[in-house]
Amino acid sequence: MSNDARTEIRSFITTKFPDVTFSDEEDIFALGFVNSLFAMELVMFIEKAFGTRIPNEELHLGNFRSVELMADLVRRQSAATVG
């Protein structure tokens, strides 16, 4: 799941921002291309693609800084749903 999630999240971002290069661990907010609209799109994308609803306590910048952190969020949410 986590690797799949990484791939899908990376694909979503690079489709929107094809000129930007970044690693899965890199802080995408530090690169300066993420505005509030795209942040909302990221939230909606994760919720739709992975069939989850991100709870308020998980909705903080630390969970969205990198592809890896977003994939970790997806993994935690999936585990919580299964559990």
């Binding site: 509030s36 942040a39 909302m40 308020n56 903080h60 910048l61």
Partner: peptide
Amino acid sequence: GPPGWAAGTVMT
């Protein structure tokens, strides 16, 4: 909702 950065998501 969540404070700080995520409040931007609430607003958006």
